[in-house]
Design a binder for these strands. Structure first.
Length: 587
DNA sequence: TTAGGGTTAG
């Protein structure tokens, strides 16, 4: 009851002047009254209900009230009387409400009001806001790097305590949003000052270096971690191992072992992997069945329809007959025969039992790390990681077997697992399989996320159906989704490969206007598709743009530029020979 | 159950 004595009924009159607010608050007042009578308030007199903080919180916590109306209510309370102030808890609530429901643009104004109310942002909410601004996990999360940076500076100025945690969100966000330079500089500065750097900070930087193929530097940092007393843990090691794998440098694991104090981790990871492979080498039961992977409820029907006649085949189950009729690519499938599969039956029938032989090898209790419990304690994320490594190597059979073991242990595959499997089907050109998984993927089992959409676009691009991609995008946008950098890059690639270079360039512009900084992949893709199309001037234009933007080329750029160089030479030769021929004619 | 590992380019 710390705030005013204003009665609700007397407040409804000024609101009527603003119809939209009025409508929202009629509902709120009704709900408020209901809440009060439920909580046993006696002699409910609408003229004497004070707006108090507990009441405000009660309203804000109600799931049945739309976020927009909560915001209306929040502002309405504030307009009641000049002295009304929301509390820190209420601000924390309203921030979560607006961020989680797509009203992130309300944040600056709310911060302003907060300052006016003399309320200081607590560090939890600070972390939450920073995270909302800079990361892009879900379909509906906004991503605004510049705003995030400004928010960060402002908060630190206002006296909110920065921590390793907040800096890590910032560094990771900068890396993920094409600002590697800024991220790395920040990391080095913090290190120099000896502040706000912990094992996770190192792990974030090691990951980025590994991704970029800068393995020497990544290893050096891992070594530095040890020297400075931070544990090189499983997450960091996994990042490095994936980097090694991508460069085909498994031999580097020895160097890694030398650097790591806990000498058991790397051997354990490798032994775990070897055991897994051995288990999978045991002849699978290979019983063919045509049971759908997932209980069918449909979904993505619209996309299937768009594909027209090709869509006929898309509902097809995993049936080996299909492959023989298809391209050469398909016939290699025979040598990498997965089992399809008793486990899938179980999955479909919702009867997942635990199996005897495999559960001893892999215990999947989330959060337990290998250094604590030895090799039986990898978590779900670890399995997903290796699944991806197998898939990237094109070992679908191994990957599917792992998937079976995984589900057999009673672990529900997460969306990521489905995305991985579909994605590698798409990469190998098994579109029917990919679409059938997609078709069966019920929104309730695993909601489609941005990665799902990304692989659809990738698949459509590979099928040479970039034309359909825009329809998929429409569907995504209608659901309130947004495009992330991977989506843009994938689309640009798909359009470029389809020879629709102007559209690709248009998308590039759109990407910049929407505040997403093109990264090295964007530029590489643009240079590559323009080179292949013989538009060398344009290719060169994008190269220049890349350097001007301060985006450093990487090893992939080298390969692409080699090709560009060759094309330019070829053109010179042609010109020279033409001149030569002309001269020859002349003499 | 709280920030980091698994999706995009050659």
């Amino acid at each position: 009851m710390r705030h005013g004595r204003t009665a609700i009924s007397s407040l409804s009159s000024p609101l009527i002047k603003n119809p939209s607010i009025h409508l929202g608050n009629i509902l709120l007042i009704a709900s408020l009254t209901k809440t009060l009578s439920k909580s046993g308030t006696r002699n409910l007199d609408p003229n004497s209900i004070p707006i108090s903080e507990p009441l405000v919180l009660q309203i804000l916590r109600k799931n049945s009230i739309e976020p927009a109306k909560k915001l209306d209510f929040f502002n309405w309370c504030r307009s009641l009387e000049p002295n009304f102030k929301h509390s820190a808890v209420t601000y924390s609530h309203i921030f979560r409400t607006v961020c989680q429901s797509g009203f992130i643009e309300e944040v600056p104004n709310l911060l302003f009001l907060m300052k006016e109310d003399g309320v200081l942002l607590d560090s939890e909410t600070f972390k939450f806001l920073l995270d909302s601004f800079i990361r892009s996990d879900g379909l509906f999360k906004a991503r605004k790097v510049m705003e995030a940076c400004q928010l960060f500076e402002k908060m630190v100025q206002d006296g909110v305590r920065a921590s390793c945690w907040t800096y890590n969100i910032l560094i990771d966000g900068l890396f993920r949003n094409g600002r590697a330079e800024a991220a790395y500089t920040l990391f080095c500065d913090l290190k120099k000052k000896g502040q706000f750097v912990d094992g996770v900070t190192y792990s974030i930087v090691v990951l980025q270096l590994s991704r970029e193929g800068q393995l020497e530097e990544a290893l050096r940092l891992a070594e530095e971690m040890e020297v400075r007393g931070f544990v090189v843990d499983l997450v960091t090691i996994t990042s490095l191992l994936i980097g090694f794998h991508k460069q085909g440098r498994w031999d580097w694991t020895e160097r890694l072992m030398k650097h790591i104090r806990d000498s058991n981790i790397v051997p354990n990871v490798l032994r775990w992997k070897a055991n897994m492979e051995a288990t999978m080498r045991n002849p699978p039961k290979n019983r063919k069945d045509n049971t759908p992977l997932f209980p069918s409820k449909g979904g993505f029907k619209e996309i299937m329809n768009l594909l027209g006649s090709a869509g006929q085949a898309m509902g097809a189950n995993l049936d080996s007959e299909d492959y023989d009729e298809n391209s050469q690519e398909m016939s290699s499938f025979e040598t990498d025969q997965w089992s399809s599969s008793p486990y899938m039956d179980q999955l479909a029938a919702n009867q997942v039992k635990s199996s005897e032989h495999s559960s001893r090898l892999f215990s999947l209790i989330r959060g337990q790390r290998v250094q604590e419990k030895g090799m039986g304690s990898f978590d779900v994320d670890m399995v997903n990681t290796f699944l991806s490594i197998f898939l990237a190597k094109g070992k679908l059979s191994l990957a599917c077997k792992l998937f079976e073991i995984f589900t057999d242990m009673g672990v529900d595959p997460v969306g990521y697992t489905y995305n991985s499997i579909m994605s590698s089907f798409v990469k190998k050109g098994y579109f029917n399989e990919a679409w059938s998984v997609l078709n069966e993927m019920d929104e309730n089992i695993c909601p489609a996320d941005i990665a799902t959409y990304n692989l659809i676009i990738q698949g459509l691009g590979k099928m040479g159906r970039a034309d359909i991609a825009s329809s998929v995008l429409d569907k995504l946008m209608k659901q309130g989704g947004y495009l992330d950098i991977i989506m843009y890059n994938t689309l640009i690639n798909a359009l470029g490969k389809a020879g629709r270079l102007d559209e690709a360039s248009k998308l590039f512009e759109q990407m910049k206007t929407s505040g997403i900084n093109p990264d090295v992949i964007t530029y590489n893709t643009l240079i590559e598709v323009h080179t292949k199309a013989g538009r060398l001037k344009d290719a060169y234009k994008f190269l220049k743009m890349m350097l001007d933007a301060g985006c450093s080329p990487n090893h992939v750029t080298d390969t692409i530029l080699d090709n560009l160089g060759k094309e330019i030479d070829k053109l010179r030769m042609q010109k020279a020979s033409m001149v030569h021929t002309n001269n020859g004619d002349g003499t």
